[in-house]
Design a protein around this nucleic acid. Structure first.
Lengths: 152, 152
DNA sequence: TGTAAACCTTGTAGCAACTACAGCTTCAAG
DNA sequence: CTTGAAGCTGTAGTTGCTACAAGGTTTACA
């Protein structure tokens, strides 16, 4: 259609979507981005559509959606005529996860705050932090912060 | 010292600390747990000290401490006479991370809530969720929820 | 036109913290 | 003494990238 077709290099594309070339290649490999057209020498060249698509992916990832959810969201945004119930479902499901995570983290925060405040600053022997970790009985809540809690 | 030495199997140990045998072997491999004594046939046998140590590790992990932090905490709890400043430092550092994570997650929650509420439930074409993901301009906050946000 | 810097290519390995096999051996109960 | 559960090692998979190494291409400038 246009004369300004595929002229953006992978580095430029990455810059525009605020990520790295490696990430772009990774997305191509796992099928989030379509295979790029290549120069004679084999380098990838992109158009504005790729910029939009990659930007969408990066934003969705910033929102914390998993790559698999992003894949579904992309598929749906490629089908503008479909009803958006599924989009809603994915977002709502994600929100629920965020909320439960928030709850567990705030319990954790209290727990940590409490044990830090209670630590009198003496020897390890009598350190409240070590005690609380040693004996879960000393927690405010039983079993509330179980599960995967890795921070960023 | 005692007659009831090393008599706990890896499965039983795992059960007592609420994890799996694989995890125990993993902790041994990375040096969080000392190498267990073995039966003639090569199976691991543990004593109560291992139960305490593994329980400590699991609790610390439940609190979200990284394995490296757990390693340091363990080293310190092995030195009861030392002052507990470093323990404090680790816990405080961890609390800070939890707090910043909480902040980012709650911004995220609002963002998600807002876009879900605004979605009128029509076609994908006009779906607010897709729109917001497509165009970061539509976010409440600029750039606030950048970075690693993987949920558990 | 030559050349050098900056960029690109593929493939592989690494991160965290486990988890899940496969294929085999050992243990404990009856 | 048999049987079935549990244990052994070693390797690969998970998630979402990131970081090389060892080369090839493009581009800018002299």
């Amino acid at each position: 259609m246009s004369m300004i077709g595929q002229s953006i290099s992978i580095g430029e594309l990455a810059r525009r979507a605020d990520c790295k070339p490696e990430t772009v290649r990774y997305y191509e490999r796992i099928g989030l981005l379509r295979d790029a057209t290549r120069t004679g020498g084999g380098q990838r060249r992109y158009g504005d559509d790729a910029v939009r698509r990659l930007t969408f992916i990066r934003h969705a990832r910033d929102f914390g959606f998993s790559v698999e959810s992003v894949r579904e969201l992309l598929a749906m945004s490629d089908q503008p005529d479909m009803p958006c119930q599924e989009v809603d479902a994915i977002a709502t499901h994600h929100l629920k996860k965020v909320e439960s995570r928030l709850q567990r983290l705030s319990i954790l925060r209290e727990e940590l705050q409490r044990m830090i405040t209670q630590c009198a600053g003496g020897k390890v022997e009598s350190c409240r932090i070590i005690e609380v970790i040693s004996d879960h009985q000393l927690c405010i809540t039983e079993k509330s912060h179980g599960g995967a809690l890795d921070l960023g």
